[in-house]
């Protein structure tokens, strides 16, 4: 499903499972987690230069729940990669928690990803041969947490996603929804500054997808900062802020007030 970017009005959102009073924090007073200034990303394909991002300015505050939408090829993934410190921008400045990460080297970025970012992927990306618990422990291993504490924290995270009884199952012994929950637990386990989800429901049926979005809602209410890339309006409507991208630029950036969405 391709979504037409509409900078002026949101499509009608069906009623969500949300309590509209639990909206985003007061953006003007909150702590800035992400600040992008004139971020551009170019790819050289043969002799041609592809401008995937063309100077994006964006500020995201702690505790926000942001959805990023846009047609295919608009630059969503590129944006995610930059936000997730998986890739560095060609130009512009990216501050994460006030620290400029635009020019960091590979190893420092690895540490930043480990400490500050939790990833949820469309295809779950779990280690097939490891137990769910071990998958969740992985970021802690790279953080150098000792085995005992690691286990403790990972078990806690598994509990948070409602899989306390599936700790030692391997991914192939679990349903898609359960796998994505494990991935969410893994994203949570290091208490990151932001959780980045790229099409988190893309490989799930709509009912299971709703469950995952429900889980995100819980995480949001606990104060996590969430950024979800999706091309589904149904998914995007769960967020509190919707950013539409087109041709490598932000086309619209709006607060979703669930009350208006419901009443519209």
């Amino acid at each position: 499903m391709t979504v037409e970017a509409n900078p002026t009005s949101l499509p009608n959102l069906p009623p969500g499972p949300l309590d509209a009073s639990a909206g985003p924090p007061d953006a003007t007073n909150g702590k800035v987690v992400i600040r992008l200034s004139q971020i551009a990303k170019n790819y050289q394909v043969g002799t041609e230069t592809v401008h995937a991002l063309r100077g994006v300015d964006l500020t995201i505050y702690k505790g926000e729940y942001v959805a990023i939408m846009g047609p295919s090829g608009s630059g969503k993934s590129t944006m995610m990669n930059v936000l997730g410190c998986l890739d560095t921008p060609s130009s512009g400045r990216f501050e994460l928690n006030g620290i400029d990460v635009s020019d960091m080297d590979d190893n420092r970025l690895a540490d930043i990803r480990n400490q500050e970012i939790g990833f949820v992927f469309q295809t779950f990306n779990l280690l097939a041969r490891s137990t769910a618990l071990h998958n969740v422990e992985l970021p802690l291993i790279y953080a150098g947490v000792n085995a005992e504490r690691r286990r403790e924290v990972a078990i806690e995270a598994m509990g948070q996603v409602g899989l306390a009884d599936r700790m030692l199952h391997k991914p192939n012994e679990m349903s898609g929804g359960q796998r994505q929950r494990v991935a969410v637990a893994r994203a949570l386990v290091n208490h990151p500054s932001i959780i980045l989800a790229d099409e988190p429901t893309g490989n799930l049926d709509s009912k299971t997808g709703e469950e995952i979005m429900g889980l995100f809602e819980v995480l949001y209410k606990k104060g996590n900062t969430l950024i979800v890339v999706t091309h589904e309006e149904d998914v995007a409507r769960h967020a509190r802020r919707l950013i539409r991208i087109r041709d490598g630029l932000i086309a619209s950036d709006e607060i979703i007030t669930h009350k208006t969405a419901v009443s519209a």
């Binding site: 690895a110 480990n114 790279y142």
Partner: peptide, 16 residues
């Protein structure tokens, strides 16, 4: 390769 990518995303350094 994908596993390596994942591990790197989760904080594995080059050395790791």
């Amino acid at each position: 390769t994908k596993e390596i990518g994942l591990r790197k995303a989760l904080g594995a350094r080059r050395r790791t």
